[in-house]
């Protein structure tokens, strides 16, 4: 049974959803209008951040899934202001039913705000550049090429999807040992210390909630890519975050990487993080 689900998860990213045209179209029709609107407000100029562009076929009422050989993200920290950061976090956490706990100890976060000083901890930003130390950026799962978290998982509940490099989670298989949380050098994983459901403001019906005792993290919006739409944070970022196929020489992320000097978090560990920062 679980093998089937697993195969399904793996295939979800590549298989055309043609056969399921009807339900998918209804899903898209109910796509959260607030976020689409927000994106239009702020990002008109830099809108096509996702490289395999939206569908052209006017006849189809649903979008083709977005596929890539290697998904990657480029965050332009120069464009991140307080409002943008908040919008990105809000978009992600609302879409994915991420609970909000009053006590920090129980906290769950998929994408969060951190100052440079902590985000690029090993860069040793000089103390006399206070403004740089406390400049904010966004942190999330790096979807590493060599993820240490999937390596330590004793049940394959977290695994790397080989066709596009996403680091995925199977919440039904996770035993809650938290070894992946321990092995992640970026602090990107959260554990459900308590039942999350009472702490979700408004549950989104089209995305699963989690139960206590399992680990969760950013999925690069795998469920949105399958429906042909960009990740929630990318959409909400107003052009500050680009997302695309690293293997495609014409993708936006490749252009950005060629034009700018970018840094990654803890590159010395050999994990090959796939979130790049323009500073």
């Amino acid at each position: 049974m679980s093998v089937d689900r697993r195969k399904f998860l793996k295939l979800a990213g590549v298989v055309s959803l043609g056969a399921a045209a009807k339900p998918v179209s209804t899903l898209l029709a109910s796509e959260d209008p607030i976020h689409v609107k927000k994106m239009e407000e702020g990002a008109a100029a830099t809108a096509p951040t996702v490289s395999p562009g939206p569908p052209q076929g006017e006849a189809s009422s649903f979008r083709e899934p977005l596929t890539a050989k290697r998904w990657a993200m480029v965050i332009d920290t120069r464009k991140l202001d307080e409002a943008t950061i908040e919008r990105c976090i809000d978009a992600c956490h609302t879409r994915h039913n991420v609970p909000e706990f009053e006590i920090k100890k129980d906290e769950i976060k998929w994408i969060w705000e951190e100052d440079f000083h902590h985000a690029f901890h090993e860069q040793d930003i000089p103390v006399y550049t206070e403004h740089i130390r406390h400049k904010s950026t966004l942190l999330l799962c790096n979807h590493c090429d060599e993820p240490p978290c999937t390596n330590v998982c004793p049940t394959e509940a977290t695994f790397k999807r080989e066709e596009d490099g996403l680091v995925m989670m199977d919440w039904h298989r996770c035993i809650g040992c938290r070894y992946c949380v321990v092995a992640c050098p970026y602090g990107s994983r959260s554990f459900n210390w308590r039942d999350p459901r009472p702490h979700i403001e408004e549950i989104q019906g089209d995305f699963p909630t989690r139960m206590r005792g399992v680990v969760e993290k950013c999925t690069f919006c795998e469920e949105r890519l399958a429906r042909g739409i960009a990740p929630a944070c990318v959409e909400a970022s107003g052009g500050a975050i680009a997302f695309g196929d690293l293997e495609d020489p014409h993708s936006s992320v490749r252009h950005l990487l060629e034009e700018h000097f970018t840094i990654r978090r803890k590159p010395n560990l050999g994990t090959q993080p796939q979130v790049y920062y323009i500073v």
Binding site: V152, P154, R173, I175, C177, G213, V215
Partner: peptide, 29 residues
């Protein structure tokens, strides 16, 4: 002590159901 530390203790047999030789926790078990 391992049992009480698990978030989902009754899924612990998943370790044997889905053996993962790359995980040191599998070998420890």
């Amino acid at each position: 002590f391992i049992f009480v530390d698990m978030g989902q203790p009754f899924r612990i047999l998943n370790v044997f159901l889905h053996p993962s030789p790359h995980s040191m926790m599998f070998w420890d078990t």
